[in-house]
Amino acid sequence: SPEVQIAILTEQINNLNEHLRVHKKDHHSRRGLLKMVGKRRRLLAYLRNKDVARYREIVEKLG
Rank of each mutant, 00 (worst) to 15 (best):
residue 30 R to K: 08
residue 27 H to Y: 12
residue 53 A to N: 12
residue 8 I to W: 15
residue 14 N to Y: 07
residue 30 R to F: 10
residue 19 H to K: 07
residue 41 R to P: 00
residue 44 L to F: 03
residue 23 H to T: 04
residue 23 H to N: 11
residue 47 L to Q: 00
residue 56 R to S: 06
residue 34 L to H: 09
residue 39 K to T: 10
residue 46 Y to H: 11
residue 61 K to D: 04
residue 36 M to D: 01
residue 23 H to E: 04
residue 32 G to P: 04
residue 33 L to S: 01
residue 20 L to C: 05
residue 6 I to Y: 02
residue 13 I to C: 04
residue 33 L to K: 02
residue 19 H to F: 08
residue 38 G to K: 14
residue 54 R to V: 08
residue 20 L to Q: 01
residue 43 L to E: 00
residue 39 K to S: 05
residue 16 L to P: 01
residue 20 L to E: 01
residue 39 K to Y: 10
residue 36 M to V: 06
residue 31 R to S: 07
residue 15 N to H: 13
residue 41 R to L: 13
residue 21 R to D: 03
residue 45 A to N: 12
residue 55 Y to L: 02
residue 43 L to H: 01
residue 61 K to P: 02
residue 13 I to N: 00
residue 55 Y to H: 03
residue 30 R to T: 05
residue 9 L to W: 03
residue 30 R to D: 05
residue 5 Q to H: 05
residue 46 Y to S: 08
residue 1 S to Q: 07
residue 56 R to L: 14
residue 12 Q to R: 13
residue 16 L to E: 02
residue 23 H to A: 05
residue 19 H to Y: 14
residue 22 V to F: 11
residue 49 N to V: 13
residue 15 N to Y: 13
residue 41 R to C: 15
residue 36 M to A: 14
residue 23 H to P: 02
residue 2 P to H: 07
residue 44 L to N: 00
residue 32 G to F: 14
residue 18 E to Y: 06
residue 62 L to N: 02
residue 24 K to T: 12
residue 54 R to M: 10
residue 14 N to H: 08
residue 45 A to S: 07
residue 38 G to P: 00
residue 63 G to H: 13
residue 9 L to N: 01
residue 9 L to F: 03
residue 26 D to R: 04
residue 58 I to Y: 04
residue 15 N to V: 13
residue 40 R to T: 02
residue 44 L to H: 00
residue 44 L to P: 00
residue 19 H to C: 07
residue 47 L to C: 02
residue 24 K to F: 08
residue 10 T to M: 06
residue 1 S to N: 10
residue 55 Y to I: 02
residue 34 L to T: 05
residue 14 N to W: 08
residue 13 I to V: 01
residue 56 R to W: 14
residue 30 R to S: 04
residue 21 R to G: 03
residue 59 V to H: 02
residue 41 R to D: 12
residue 10 T to L: 05
residue 9 L to S: 01
residue 53 A to H: 12
residue 32 G to L: 15
residue 48 R to M: 09
residue 44 L to W: 03
residue 15 N to I: 14
residue 35 K to N: 09
residue 35 K to S: 10
residue 37 V to E: 07
residue 42 R to A: 11
residue 4 V to K: 11
residue 1 S to H: 07
residue 36 M to L: 15
residue 19 H to Q: 06
residue 38 G to M: 15
residue 45 A to C: 13
residue 24 K to Y: 09
residue 43 L to R: 00
residue 19 H to S: 05
residue 33 L to G: 00
residue 41 R to A: 14
residue 27 H to R: 09
residue 44 L to A: 01
residue 20 L to G: 02
residue 5 Q to I: 12
residue 26 D to C: 06
residue 49 N to A: 13
residue 28 H to K: 14
residue 39 K to V: 10
residue 36 M to K: 06
residue 5 Q to K: 07
residue 22 V to G: 08
residue 48 R to D: 01
residue 63 G to R: 13
residue 27 H to S: 06
residue 60 E to K: 11
residue 60 E to P: 02
residue 17 N to Q: 14
residue 17 N to W: 14
residue 38 G to T: 12
residue 14 N to A: 07
residue 11 E to Y: 08
residue 60 E to F: 07
residue 31 R to F: 09
residue 36 M to F: 04
residue 21 R to F: 04
residue 17 N to R: 15
residue 55 Y to F: 09
residue 28 H to E: 13
residue 42 R to W: 07
residue 13 I to H: 01
residue 2 P to T: 13
residue 45 A to P: 15
residue 52 V to K: 10
residue 50 K to I: 15
residue 14 N to I: 10
residue 1 S to W: 15
residue 35 K to D: 09
residue 33 L to V: 05
residue 60 E to Q: 08
residue 63 G to M: 14
residue 58 I to W: 06
residue 44 L to V: 01
residue 31 R to Y: 09
residue 12 Q to L: 12
residue 40 R to H: 02
residue 39 K to G: 02
residue 52 V to L: 14
residue 32 G to V: 15
residue 45 A to L: 10
residue 57 E to F: 04
residue 54 R to N: 03
residue 48 R to L: 09
residue 12 Q to K: 14
residue 23 H to G: 04
residue 50 K to W: 09
residue 51 D to F: 03
residue 18 E to A: 10
residue 62 L to I: 11
residue 42 R to K: 13
residue 7 A to Y: 15
residue 59 V to D: 01
residue 11 E to D: 07
residue 37 V to W: 07
residue 15 N to K: 15
residue 20 L to D: 01
residue 35 K to I: 12
residue 2 P to Q: 05
residue 9 L to M: 04
residue 43 L to W: 04
residue 15 N to Q: 13
residue 16 L to C: 07
residue 34 L to Y: 11
residue 45 A to Q: 12
residue 47 L to D: 00
residue 29 S to Y: 06
residue 54 R to F: 04
residue 32 G to T: 15
residue 56 R to M: 14
residue 54 R to Q: 06
residue 21 R to N: 06
residue 32 G to S: 14
residue 53 A to R: 10
residue 22 V to W: 10
residue 59 V to G: 02
residue 27 H to N: 10
residue 18 E to K: 10
residue 38 G to E: 15
residue 54 R to A: 13
residue 16 L to D: 01
residue 10 T to P: 00
residue 37 V to K: 08
residue 52 V to H: 10
residue 28 H to P: 06
residue 17 N to A: 14
residue 51 D to H: 04
residue 54 R to E: 04
residue 49 N to K: 12
residue 10 T to V: 07
residue 60 E to N: 09
residue 29 S to D: 04
residue 63 G to F: 15
residue 43 L to A: 02
residue 47 L to H: 00
residue 11 E to I: 11
residue 19 H to V: 05
residue 23 H to L: 03
residue 25 K to L: 12
residue 35 K to G: 05
residue 4 V to G: 08
residue 22 V to K: 12
residue 28 H to C: 13
residue 50 K to N: 12
residue 32 G to M: 15
residue 4 V to D: 14
residue 46 Y to N: 11
residue 28 H to D: 13
residue 4 V to I: 11
residue 39 K to I: 14
residue 22 V to N: 12
residue 10 T to G: 01
residue 6 I to L: 03
residue 39 K to M: 12
